[in-house]
Amino acid sequence: MKPKVAFFDFACCEGCQLQVANLEEDILGLVNLVDVVEFREVLTGSAPEYDVSFIEGSITRPEDEARLRDIRSRSKVLVSYGACAATGGVNKIKNLWGNIDKVKKEVYDKDAAMPHLETYPTKAVHEVVKVDYFVHGCPITRSEFLKVVKALVFGTTPDIPQYPVCVECKMLGNECMYDKGGVCLGPVTRAGCNAICPSNNVSCEGCRGAVPNPNNNAMHEVLAKYKLSVDDIKRQFTMYALDPEVGK
């Protein structure tokens, strides 16, 4: 029997589920492998239990936590996918403000006190429930998503790269962004995206989160050497919550 798979979203732009919906010819292969029972953006329907749940988005409200725990309790395997879910992503920028009321005032101004705008500091999915696997990226890389699905259906565990973006970037034969006079967070960012940004002449911004033991000191030194100000370095490291120590 095909595994029952569901997709859920929390605070996010829904861009990652769009990546799944846009798998093109592979979508047919995917539905041959799994039974998609819940996927708000693609179909109606629901199921009491799931073999695999894919969670997109960050947790930003008390009611999110309750909903997420309920999904977890009904899921055999839970995958946190996309930067918002996997690290907190751009949603974590608000945590740097320290005071959540200041954030609400800045964003909603006079409406800040309205009850449906209640929010608290952003949490990644694994900060609330146990996560079995991660698919990183803003947005996720389709090929990596498929790799994870294939591994889970075949009954094994997916290999998620433990090394930096530079490995994939160099294997593609790219010229280093630093060589071109730019800066890039590739050296401290987890690979798996097939270096899509530097391959298209855009610096890595760290959307996939950090490698297991990033050399952040060396990264700061390098960025300073390339004439970035302390504020710029801070911005680089906090956009995707790459280094939680920066900005504290």
Partner: peptide
């Protein structure tokens, strides 16, 4: 070592490095 990113760039560009993994 304190400055090393462990990013593999020195190895990927090297004409002699031939270590590999199986996948």
């Amino acid at each position: 070592g304190a400055k090393c990113f462990s990013c593999g760039s020195c190895v990927t560009v090297c004409p002699t490095c031939y270590c590999f993994d199986m996948l």
